[in-house]
């Protein structure tokens, strides 16, 4: 192992403290008994219990989950097919460059622009159909739109890693297209598809901007709820809610890490 300069060690610890200090603050005040203000009044878990009595929060949690699950499923299917279509066919270089640019738009353009363009587009589509009133369907469409790109990029890199030889071997061993897809390609792609889906799911949970622009009054999500609550004046419940969301994030991250590390080994 390399000897490390004390300055590097010091900066690293300070940086980590800088990342975690505010989060720790939220967690500490989530178990503070004080109803108002930031003075320590003793330990309590009652704010957590109260969360489950708050219909607003429960509904927001349900919306968040619904939004993430539906958009992830659709985006994973569309993104996977798109990745296969882009990587496994003899497109002219101009065509594939064009497809590549489209796919990278959500990565190189600030999400607020995507949000703004969706607001305007939905506003015009509203003349055609009431589906495009602000609300959950709009949010799902918005989320899918940026998720597809990320799923497709992840799955495509997996396709590239698999390479052509396994497919050639399968055909050399008399596999028809359908048999090859079912018995070789899908099982081999599965880690990439799951990784893509996990990424899409977390991106959806993490999103604020797209939801903020496309949400209606009936479709609060947890991030929107917290954002609104900060302006109304924060209650300890918000601290409890935030801490809970952080815990869920930690669990998701650890699970994802386990999953990818397990598959890297194979």
């Amino acid at each position: 192992m390399r000897r490390q300069h004390p300055l590097i060690v010091a900066i690293s610890y300070l940086t980590m403290a800088f990342l975690y200090l505010p989060l720790a603050g939220v967690a500490i005040f989530s178990v503070n008994a004080a109803r108002r203000g930031l003075v320590w009044k003793g330990f309590t878990l009652k704010w957590y219990l109260k969360l489950f009595e708050n219909d607003w929060i429960l509904e927001a949690a349900w919306n968040t989950l619904l939004l993430a699950v539906i958009s992830t499923i659709i985006a994973t299917v569309l993104g996977t097919i798109l990745a296969i279509a882009m990587d496994r066919f003899p497109w002219r270089s101009r065509t594939s460059n064009f497809l590549d640019i489209i796919l990278h738009i959500p990565v190189v353009i600030p999400d607020i622009i995507l949000a703004a363009s969706l607001v305007v587009a939905f506003g015009l589509l509203r003349m055609a159909s009431s589906i495009f009133e602000p609300g959950l369907p709009n949010m799902i469409i918005g989320h899918i739109t940026f998720q597809i790109a990320f799923v497709a990029l992840v799955v495509r890199s997996r396709l590239v890693a698999i390479g052509s030889e396994v497919e050639e071997a399968a055909r050399d061993l008399f596999a028809t297209n359908w048999y090859l897809l079912r018995k070789v390609m899908l099982p081999l792609l599965m880690p990439g598809i799951i990784a893509g889906a996990m990424l899409a799911f977390t991106l959806s949970l993490d999103d604020f901007v797209i939801s903020f622009f496309t949400a209606g009054p009936e479709s609060q999500t947890l991030p929107l709820f917290i954002f609104a609550a900060v302006r109304r004046g924060v209650t300890p419940q918000i601290h409890a809610l935030s801490t809970l969301i952080m815990l869920v994030t930690v669990i998701l991250v650890v699970l994802t890490e386990r999953f990818t590390r397990h598959h890297e080994k194979e």
Binding site: E165, V166, E168, A169, A170, V184, L188, E266
Partner: peptide
């Protein structure tokens, strides 16, 4: 095949 191309 050169890399054997076994199905992992």
């Amino acid at each position: 095949f050169q890399s054997y191309a076994l199905f992992p």
